[in-house]
Every structure is written in C-alpha cells, then in structure tokens.
C-alpha cells in the first residue's frame, strides 16, 4: 500500500499526466502495484518540495504558489475519478487543500511531497465515496421528492461562502480583507486594529473552524 502510494504518481508522470493523476493505470485496481520509479518523480517533486519548504519557513508567496499548483493536480485527479462535471469536485479540491495545510506537520521532508499529497487526496476521495454510499442507501421517499424543486442534496452541498458567513464577525472581516484585493496581513491588521500576529492567529483559527464545519456538513 505504501509502496503503491509512492509509486503511482511516478507512473502517471512518466505517461505525461500530472503528479496526482494516476487514474488511467490505477482506477480499477488498488493504486498501482510496484512500479519502477522513473526519474520523472523527482522532476515534479523537487520544485513542489522546494516551495513547501519555503512555505514552512514562512514565505507566503511560495506557499500560495505551491497550493495553486497543487489545486491544478487535485482538480485533474478528482475529475478523472468522479467525472469533470461532478458536483462535489471543487469542494473536494478545497477540502483537500485545507487538509494539506492543516496537517502539513505530518509531511516528513525526507519523503516525496507528491506521494504525501497523493495519499491525502486518495483518502479524501475514498471518504467522499463512502459518504455517498451512505447517502444513496437512505430510505426511498415518495415520488414527489424526485420532482421537488429544491431537494436536500443541493443544500447538503458544501458551501464555504455560507460557512464563512457563520464565523464570528471579526474573523470574517479579517478573512475577507485578506482574501479580497490582496490585502497583506499587515494591511489587514492595520485596518482591523489587530496586531499582525493576531491576524495570523485569527486566520488560522478560522481555517480550523472551516474544516470542522466541512466535516460536520458532510459527516
């Protein structure tokens, strides 16, 4: 299993797909049997790893770049698994990005970043499919539920905007300042009258609150 997780990205990269896209080879079988590690693995992994290390050292620009590249790989991976029009696709990407961020201490810098991220994405995918199975086995209701204008499924969908709206006012303000128009934390701090580190703490708390809500919604 571990070997499979590590080698799958390598296989897909040698066939020209993204780091997290091992689909064609592994979609029906367990993710890959042992494969020869191509030199391609380090080619994709090294720059991402460098960005991650700079991010961990506090370089927000490098970290944003890493997450943004990661999101492309994740979107492609989930689209291959679920179909590109899947309603949960972007939620899954966002959930995985948040998880990658909040669990970043579990990455061991001596190991490839791609296989670590892939294992998280795979876990999130399986988790999502398990939840769907639960959803599908709910009791069948009367016929009108099929034709009801606004069924439960859309409202059950993860809506981070709404979740943001439920955060305490101050946290929400800081989040939207930082998010909109590229306020730096220093600027957001001046605006809200908080210290810069307080802004960072606030963002951190909000992200944790977000992922808790994501879990409650889906769980």
């Amino acid at each position: 299993m571990t070997v499979a997780n590590r080698t799958s990205p390598a296989r897909s990269m040698r066939t020209g797909h993204g780091a997290l896209a091992h689909t064609r080879l592994g979609s029906t079988t367990a993710p890959g049997r042992s494969a020869h590690l191509g030199s391609g693995l380090s080619e994709i992994d090294a720059p991402l790893k460098a960005l991650m290390l700079r991010g961990l050292a506090g370089d927000t620009g490098a970290y944003a770049e890493l997450l943004s590249r990661m999101s492309v790989h994740l979107r492609r991976y989930f689209a291959r698994k679920l179909g590109s029009g899947d309603a949960d696709l972007e939620d899954l990407v966002q959930d995985t990005l948040l998880t990658i961020h909040l669990r970043r201490d579990t990455w061991d810098a001596t190991l490839p970043l791609t296989s670590w991220a892939y294992a998280i994405a795979h876990y999130k995918l399986i988790d999502q499919l398990r939840r769907r199975r639960v959803r599908y086995t709910e009791p069948i209701e009367a016929a009108e539920s099929l034709f009801a204008g606004d069924d439960g499924d859309t409202s059950a969908r993860l809506d981070i905007d709404r979740l943001l709206g439920e955060l305490p006012e101050r946290q929400r303000q800081v989040l939207s300042d930082v998010k909109l128009g590229g306020f730096s934390t220093a600027e957001a701090a001046r605006k809200s009258g908080m210290s810069e580190s307080a802004v960072k703490v606030s963002v951190h708390r909000s992200l944790k609150a977000l992922i808790r809500r994501v879990r409650d919604e889906n769980g």
Binding site: L56, A64, L67, S71, L98, I160, V178, G182, T185, S206
Partner: peptide
C-alpha cells in the same frame, strides 16, 4: 468561495515544520 481565494487565505497561515519529530 473560489479556490483561489481559499489559497490566498491559507497562504497567510504559512509556516510550520517538516521536522521528523513533529509526530513523535
């Protein structure tokens, strides 16, 4: 929320450790 916005938010919260001791 757009994913790019989420990324902008998360990146503010950069910094951490990749130390082998973090889990222990």
């Amino acid at each position: 929320m757009k994913t790019d916005d989420l990324i902008a938010l998360i990146s503010v919260d950069a910094r951490g450790s990749a130390s082998p001791m973090s889990v222990v």
